[in-house]
């Protein structure tokens, strides 16, 4: 491991030697990755490979060692609640919506750290424009939405923090195929607006078709890192994750 902190260069988010331990078990074993502004990058891998642990560590939700840089700033000593204010939003695994609040209240919570009322109202209109389904259901309790709508809500709530970087944890999980397509359409639309996307996904094919670049994770280590096209063509990836 480097003695001096690594130079993030022009990366938006960079991790160096990131490790996560649960008790004696090393879930993430010293991985490094870098994401540049405006990119769409995915992290794929099997169940238990350490993908969610990596994302949670980057979002400072779980203790980790190693360096995390965001815009030349060290994140690895910051508490998680400050990240949204720096432009980093997490859409957690299992969506994590506030089930007993309405859709509108959920979205309002996404702007909890902000006080610029006019801008918040503008962002809300923007989110409703992007996700019209949420507008129809604004007064409905979030727990009664379908899985896909809940995922849209989780993304909408994250956008209410006006992020530059969106971390998404398994957005396709538990959704019907048709809904998965819709969710990924939304993710592409968000990316088209200039938001950098880092996506953790078990659905390797979909993730690689959506993103420009990907990392492959196996037992806590990154084993492959390349452009999405090359990964899609790689025989190891095809055998292990694309079922060919």
């Amino acid at each position: 491991m480097a003695d001096k902190p690594a130079d993030p260069g022009h990366a938006l988010l960079m991790a160096v030697g990131l490790e996560v331990h649960y008790g004696g078990i090393a879930a993430v074993q010293g991985i490094s990755l870098a994401i540049e502004e405006g990119e769409m990058v995915c992290l794929i891998g099997a169940n238990g490979a350490g993908k969610t642990s990596t994302l949670k560590a980057l979002a400072r939700m779980i203790p980790s060692s190693g360096e995390i840089h965001y815009r030349k700033e060290r994140l690895d000593r910051l508490p998680s609640h400050l990240l949204i204010g720096k432009g980093m939003a997490l859409v957690p695994e299992g969506r994590g919506i506030f089930a007993r609040l309405t859709v509108a209240e959920n979205l309002a919570m996404g702007a909890y750290h902000r006080s610029d009322k006019a801008d918040i109202a503008a962002d809300l209109a923007h989110v409703y424009g992007l996700l019209p389904r949420l507008k129809e259901r604004a007064e409905q309790v979030a727990g009664t939405l379908s899985g896909g709508e809940q995922q849209m809500l989780a993304i909408g709530r994250a956008l209410m923090g006006r992020p530059q970087l969106l971390l998404l944890d398994e957005p396709s999980m538990g959704l019907a195929p048709l809904m998965v397509d819709k969710v990924f359409e939304v993710i592409r639309a968000v990316a088209a607006e200039g938001v950098t996307i880092f996506l953790v996904e078990q659905n390797a094919r979909l993730a690689l078709q959506t993103c420009a670049r990907g990392y492959v994770m196996e037992s806590g280590r990154i084993t492959l890192a390349d452009s999405a096209d090359k990964l899609l063509a790689d025989p190891r990836v095809r055998a292990a994750y694309l079922g060919e």
């Binding site: 979002a59 939700m61 998680s80 609640h81 400050l82 990240l83 949204i84 204010g85 939003a89 997490l90 859409v91 957690p92 994590g96 919506i97 506030f98 089930a99 007993r100 609040l101 209240e105 309002a108 919570m109 996404g110 909890y112 750290h113 989780a154 709530r157 994250a158 923090g161």
Partner: peptide, 17 residues
């Protein structure tokens, strides 16, 4: 509202700042 958010989902509450 922050209390209710924590009650509903703590990780999402943290992510919301």
């Amino acid at each position: 509202r922050a209390w209710v958010a924590i009650r509903e989902d703590e990780i999402a509450a943290k992510a919301a700042g």
